[in-house]
Each structure stands twice: as structure tokens, then as C-alpha cells.
């Protein structure tokens, strides 16, 4: 890796330092130096290097993206086959929603995005239709906090017709 590029990457990560380690490789025991990034405190030689080369300002665009990613979470919404036409015949939707959002907020978001979902009436504020069962990670939301159930990143929301529960 070129020296200038290495310096750029090194200074971009505020608390990183280079690790140099030696790996054995191949039957001829060719020893190859590798340099990798590792979070941690700066070593003394790095502090000296940092003093000579002050840190550049963090790119604001990257900072804004990082900030946006940190406040949203990913939720999977799946609908039973007989309901998938409500969301454009997709059985699964991967949705980004703000951290700590409730189930109600998710359903409202989907209703706004898909008119057929809204028209079906499976979610009519402040109730869930009696014709469906909604699960979060397999648990019926009627046993959780209903529409106020707080979602977590990676949650799976699954909607099936109630008639399937027989």
C-alpha cells in the first residue's frame, strides 16, 4: 500500500493504529509482512507521526450518512401468500424505519406506500382487523403490546389470515 494512501487511511480512523504482523506462507517459508487496521490507542511512534500530521476534518457527507444509518433499523415484513397482492405480490419487504418505532408506525408506513394494503383494512387505526394475525418474531402481537409493541432491529413481522390458525 502506498505511503500517502496509508497515511490517509490511518488518520481517517481516529483511534486506529497499524498493526504489523508476520505470517508464514507457503512451503518455502516466505515470510510476508502484512499491515492491517485495528482499533486501539495510538502507540508512541504513531503519536509522533500524528503530531507531525494533524488529523484532517471528518468528511461531513460520510458523517451524515453514518448518523442516518445509526438512527434507523431494518425490519422484515412478510405476508402470507393470499395477502401478498396487497404489497405488489411481494411476499417479503425489507423496510427501514426509525429506531424504536412501534408496530403501528410500521403498518402506517406500509399503508402509505401500498394503497391496496390500506384499502384491505387489515390495519385501520387504532385496530388490527380480526381477519388477520400479526406476529413479531413468531409471537402474536395480541400477546405482546398490540400496536404499541416496540420493534427492534432485525425483527420479523409476519401477517397471516386468521383462518389459517384453525
Amino acid at each position: 500500500m502506498g505511503g500517502w494512501a496509508a497515511w490517509q487511511l490511518k488518520t481517517f480512523f481516529n483511534d486506529t493504529r497499524f498493526f504489523e504482523h508476520v505470517s508464514d506462507k507457503g512451503p518455502n517459508w516466505i515470510r510476508e509482512k502484512k499491515t492491517v487496521f485495528c482499533p486501539g490507542k495510538r502507540s508512541s511512534p504513531d503519536r509522533a507521526l500524528a503530531a507531525e500530521n494533524p488529523l484532517p476534518r471528518v468528511d461531513t457527507k460520510m458523517g451524515a450518512t453514518a448518523r442516518r444509518l445509526a438512527v434507523t433499523m431494518e425490519i422484515t415484513l412478510k405476508l402470507a401468500p393470499s395477502l401478498s397482492d396487497l404489497v405488489g405480490n411481494k411476499e417479503k419487504l425489507f423496510l427501514s424505519i426509525e429506531q424504536g418505532a412501534s408496530l403501528e408506525k410500521l403498518l402506517k408506513m406500509v399503508s402509505d406506500e401500498y394503497p391496496a394494503f390500506k384499502a384491505h383494512g387489515l390495519y385501520t387505526p387504532p385496530n388490527i382487523s380480526d381477519d388477520v394475525i400479526i406476529f413479531i418474531n413468531g409471537d402474536n402481537v395480541r400477546h405482546l403490546n398490540y400496536l404499541d409493541t416496540e420493534l427492534k432491529s432485525g425483527d420479523m413481522v409476519y401477517i397471516i389470515p386468521l383462518l389459517a390458525g384453525g
Binding site: 422484515t76 412478510k78 417479503k92 380480526d130 381477519d131 394475525i133 406476529f135 418474531n137 413468531g138 409471537d139 402474536n140 420479523m156 409476519y158 397471516i160 386468521l162 383462518l163 390458525g165 384453525g166
Partner: peptide, 26 residues
């Protein structure tokens, strides 16, 4: 697939097959 997780208690099914229950009425 893990997204297919849907657990229903039998007591809920029994209720659906009672008079007025969605399964029986359907």
C-alpha cells in the same frame, strides 16, 4: 425459512371454532 415463524396456542383455535368464532362462522 425463519421469516415463517407463526406460533398459535390451541386455546386460540378452540375459541375460533366456538359460536361467533371466525373459523366456525366462515
Amino acid at each position: 425459512e425463519n421469516e415463517n415463524r407463526a406460533w398459535i396456542f390451541e386455546r386460540e383455535t378452540v375459541a375460533m371454532w366456538q359460536p361467533g368464532g371466525r373459523l366456525l362462522e366462515s
